[in-house]
């Protein structure tokens, strides 16, 4: 690989992530939280109505994931990132509440890179569809809010060496944009 591999442990403060560069491979351990469309929508409603959030968001990392049910004897079913772009509209609201990173797949709106720069946050890429392997990097799962949302509930995950690539760094640079340019063949 072109870039370095770095082991990191949550919580990720702005200080810890400020020197990360796009393309760095991260092996992340510690506690992270899941949230997707439906949970983000509820967090937004709380935020707009000054209600207490179900989890403390400061310095937290949000993984956009909705796992399959765990088979007996397993901690979790298959789990891998969903399309991040659907959560773009919630990013600023989440950053204002102190999250420092998001994990997902795919490109995001241009303003997300600008927001990462402004708030000193990162967007991490995981591998969409590598769900059986990623499940092995999740060691513990607990539903902490919105159980009624099923797979979309907010879950506290304990991860060990969760493999990520820095997709947008706190300087506002975008990994995918730079890589795609390298391999594009112009007419």
């Amino acid at each position: 690989m072109e870039n370095r591999t770095i082991k990191m442990t949550t919580p990720l403060t702005k200080e810890k992530i400020k020197d990360l560069n796009i393309g760095d491979i991260i092996e992340l351990s510690g506690v992270i939280y899941t949230a997707r469309d439906a949970a983000h929508n509820r967090i937004k409603e709380n935020y707009e109505n000054n209600r207490k959030q179900p989890i403390e968001l400061e310095y937290q990392i949000i993984f956009y994931v909705g796992p399959t049910p765990a088979k007996p004897g397993k901690v979790i079913g298959s789990a891998a990132p969903t399309t991040s772009a659907r959560m773009d509209k919630y990013v600023e609201m989440m950053l204002k509440q102190g999250i420092t990173g998001m994990i997902g797949k795919g490109e995001r709106a241009d303003y997300v890179a600008e927001l990462c720069r402004e708030y000193g946050a990162c967007y991490f890429l995981s591998i969409g569809g590598a769900s059986a392997m990623i499940a092995n990097q999740i060691k513990d799962v607990e539903v902490v809010a919105y159980e009624d949302l099923g797979t979309e509930s907010i879950k506290r995950l304990k991860v060990e060496d969760l493999r990520l690539i820095v997709g947008i760094d706190s300087k506002g640079r975008t990994f995918q944009e730079e890589q795609v340019k390298k391999y594009k063949i112009s007419k």
Binding site: E2, V65, G66, G77, I127, G129, A130, A132, Q179
Partner: peptide
């Protein structure tokens, strides 16, 4: 692309693991 090759290798390993363990290849 090294990142592309790495990604494809992970997807192939993932497919093998999912089939062996009879678990979904993808969570969706």
């Amino acid at each position: 692309s090294p990142y592309g090759r790495d990604t494809l290798k992970l997807l192939l390993d993932n497919a093998e693991l999912a089939s062996k363990e009879e678990m979904p290849v993808c969570h969706d």
